[in-house]
């Protein structure tokens, strides 16, 4: 059961997701208290173990915020992260869980607005489900 205040872990690439989070904070945008933010040097460092551990520890959802395609400082770390997320979504579905528990979100560094919207959308998805 998802509580009114879902726990969401946001794994944030230091180059895009993290600045986008900071930007959202600096704009004073609404972010849920249940949000936990983990900075990573690259979206591609969001390894399977981290994502599964987060769910295992009781997170309702995991979000990976990385750079848009073509913008990765490490060439294809973002694509690697996206593939990993898609693979895990398939696995979740196979075992009867909602694939929406793991989502991949490309963001630009100065898109605090989009960051907040994506988190809110995830909360809505979880509560609506």
């Amino acid at each position: 059961m998802v509580s009114k205040n879902p726990k969401i872990v946001a794994f944030c690439c230091e180059e895009s997701g993290m600045p986008a989070y900071e930007h959202a904070v600096s704009l004073g945008l609404d972010l849920p208290d249940g949000l936990k933010v983990v900075a990573l040097p690259c979206g591609g460092k969001a390894e399977t173990g981290y994502l599964m551990k987060a769910l295992d520890e009781g997170a309702d959802a995991v979000m990976v915020f990385a750079c848009y395609e073509g913008n990765c400082k490490y060439v294809r770390g973002n694509i690697r992260a996206e593939k990993r997320v898609n693979y895990l979504r398939e696995r979740l579905e196979k075992i009867g869980l909602s694939p929406e528990k793991i989502v991949f979100c490309p963001v630009a560094p100065a898109s605090g607005q989009r960051f907040a919207e994506l988190v809110q959308r995830e909360v809505d998805t979880l509560l609506g489900a």
């Binding site: 972010l31 936990k36 933010v37 983990v38």
Partner: peptide, 9 residues
Amino acid sequence: SGQQAVLRI
């Protein structure tokens, strides 16, 4: 905003 637990590098 800004109340979240954050793990920084």
